[in-house]
Design a protein around this nucleic acid. Structure first.
Lengths: 217, 217
DNA sequence: ATAGAATATGAATAAGCATTCACAATCTGC
DNA sequence: GCAGATTGTGAATGCTTATTCATATTCTAT
């Protein structure tokens, strides 16, 4: 944290350069894919010489990995935090959906890469990345599953499916809506309940009148 | 159909060769990705010379496109058929989930490619493919949405979300479970209801009506 | 201001791979 | 069994691009 103060001018400068390289790289990778973005291009876009890139990253793969893992870490943290903030399960879920949306919206270029890497077999890059990301994602789903489990044991949620399955379901649902938004089809819902209602209310069970929705369809 | 009889021996032979090439290609592409599978390798695996590959496909991209679109067509047909067979909406949904599972299980190598291409930004290959697949997928979702809409207008389904959204949701849910299965985490559910119950039953207690904004502990 | 260290540069290197084509093998009808 | 056509072959070509390294530039401390 306050370690930042300890960095010398030179070190701060190096940090900035590194960031600029990564920024240029994200843009190019997400536009053209890993294999079609050349180191030359990345260097040019970042306004450095190719050789300089290699002073910061062992090779192209290393650059790419750094890119993905560092950003993925930030996502993971933001989402874990979103789930931790509240004690009310419903609010936690709403928070999750909303934060996921916001975080993704603010990093479109990266999201393309992240989706390419985590969904669809990510053979773009050697083994390591793949399993590391999966591991992290799995942890997050675990935290999410715990929210469902807690809601169930407190009698607020029905046991309509295993918590772990519900976690997978909610996460993939968010991703589906986000994908739609990325492709410019639909907007990501303003209200998290557009997504969550699919979980909250049963498609069947016509005997119970619903209060707040059957809203504008 | 009986066109097959009309093919000369030579033509049948050509078909077989073409299939063998495509089979070798699917395997390599799905293992190593588009860019890391070389034409030399594909030729070797199919037991042909490189030049022969080029007698059948204009170039690498053409080979890849043929691969994806031909197989995707079969999927699309199988799934559309699955939705058409029944007149009872619930049975239609069950059928969809089940057929999707079966079809995918039987074509694992291809599925990896399909996921890589349709989810995650598919920049592997030039424009055409991308939008063509999306178009097809969109049509399918439309048919699926119609099932939800019909169920609603017949009073069997509650209007918990727009039909189109429900279609996206169910499809992405299936994909999520299939992904899990591909990664060897969980098995794809034997019964389609493991997935469908998330839609059919509400997570919230029916006696616990949720008012849109004013929810609290 | 200056030596010497640290850092940046980009032309040159080398490897990989898609694609071609001159030739070889095979098939076809006679 | 043969000429001509069709089809299969894989070494050679040429281009792209990751990576290196000798040199130029900039910084630091005296």
């Amino acid at each position: 944290m306050q370690e930042i103060k300890k960095l010398s001018r030179r070190e701060r400068e190096k940090c900035r350069q590194r960031r600029e390289m990564l920024t240029a790289a994200v843009q190019l990778f997400s536009e053209k894919g890993y294999h079609n973005a050349s180191m030359q291009e990345i260097a040019a876009k970042a306004e450095f010489a190719v050789g300089t890139l290699y002073k910061f990253f062992k090779n192209k793969e290393d650059l790419y990995k750094a890119l993905i893992t560092e950003q993925a870490d930030r996502f993971h943290e933001a989402l874990t935090a979103a789930l931790g903030e509240e004690t009310d399960e419903i609010a936690q879920l709403r928070n999750y959906v909303q934060v996921k949306g916001r975080v993704f919206m603010d990093n479109v270029a990266f999201i393309r890469l992240y989706f390419a890497e985590t969904r669809g077999a990510g053979f773009s890059i050697k083994a390591g990345l793949d399993s590391e990301l999966r591991e992290r994602h799995c942890q997050l789903l675990h935290v999410l599953a715990a929210v469902f489990a807690k809601g169930m044991s407190r009698g607020r949620f029905q046991r309509i499916a295993e918590p772990q399955h519900l976690a997978v379901a909610l996460d993939s649902l968010c991703n589906a809506f986000l994908s739609n938004w990325l492709e410019g089809r639909d907007a990501y819902p303003e209200s998290p309940d557009i997504i969550l209602n699919i979980f909250f209310h049963g498609l069947l069970e016509p005997s119970f009148p619903l209060h707040c929705e059957s809203e504008r369809l």
